[in-house]
Amino acid sequence: MSGSAVATTPGMSAVGTPTVVTRALRKEFGARVAVDSLDLTIYRGEVFGLLGPNGSGKTTTIRLLCALMAPTSGSAEVVGLDVETQGERVRARIGYMSQRYGLYDDLTVAENLRFYSTVYGLHGEARTRRLAEHSCALGLDERRNQLAGTLSGGWKQRLALACATAHEPEMLFLDEPTAGVDPAARRDFWTSIYALASRGTTILVTTHYMDEAERCQRLAFLSRGHLIALGTPREITAHFGQASIEDVFIELQRQDEAQYGVAVGGSR
């Protein structure tokens, strides 16, 4: 199945207006092709999982969709805007949270929130009101004067999510958001994610936890820059005749290794 996507029919959730549309998206770094002929459509309010081993092109895909780098060829539209020509406007309407959280350890919880909301263009009265609601909803109020550097992993994650969503983005990118967080915090985190999605925020998440992958409404498997499977978790397990997403992941990785004859999991 060299390169051709094993596309399955879109699941039940995949109806409505598209938030992300990519057409033949391709990105090269020198001689290496990081993302190749990627066609993806993600719909409004969807929780969409992007899976694949390290180096499969997940991070590059997110960086392309966040308008951080220009595609070599092909195109991508996010929230109805072309990422290549309208990058700055795209970035104003999306949120991004990385594995490293991007918090300032030497600022307090409230200062981090204030800073990021200002960078996203919130000011004055509106900002004060929004931040008050927001930090209350996420339970950050009690720790508002604590330095971010002294928070535990779960709290940092909560704050990072608050910083990424204070401007009420239409699209939220989560790059391995739950690495190194305890199960209880992960469960709370997913509750927040579903609350955001139910209010119409589209979510794209990458993860290495297969139980989290099964929580996504639809999944895409990437391998060496190619889309090799797309569908609901149930469709994908059925298609590959495996019991769980984890088994599918291991099976795909095995095939991948057999095809290329090298171990997967090198540098990104």
Binding site: L68, R89, Y101, G102, L103, Y104, V119, Y120
Partner: peptide, 13 residues
């Protein structure tokens, strides 16, 4: 600390 990465994805030029 990864905050530069975070800043770059904001609309700030």
């Amino acid at each position: 600390r990864g905050t530069l990465e975070q800043l770059v994805v904001t609309p700030i030029g």
